[in-house]
Amino acid sequence: MHETVAAESVLRSIQEHAQRLHARPIRAVISCGQFNALNEELMQFAFETAAAGTICEGMVIQIRQIPLRAVCSRCRKTFDLKLMEPFCPQCRGEDFEIQPDAPLILEEIEFEDQQ
């Protein structure tokens, strides 16, 4: 349940933006890499719990999973790596360099339109 820590950090950031813009946030998009292992349902649950009673209560949190990328040492193709099928889809090479995993990023917040 490391989603709790992530949800609390996301909440803090969104609250800061909401305060600055004097607007009510309704939806946020987060992106993460494969080693962050964030589960969308757990993240939503953890966020709802953390956000109860704040301006962020009722928000929808969407997660965009960023695949792990690798560069083939033989044909130099960059490809999405599946951990259980670790080979280059172009030349079938099994020797490749894994690129750094995508960090956890708060990409976008949608606010309620103000009258």
Binding site: L21, L106, I109
Partner: peptide, 9 residues
């Protein structure tokens, strides 16, 4: 209103 951020969490 949408705000794009790209902020590391």
């Amino acid at each position: 209103m949408k705000v794009s951020l790209n902020q590391r969490i």
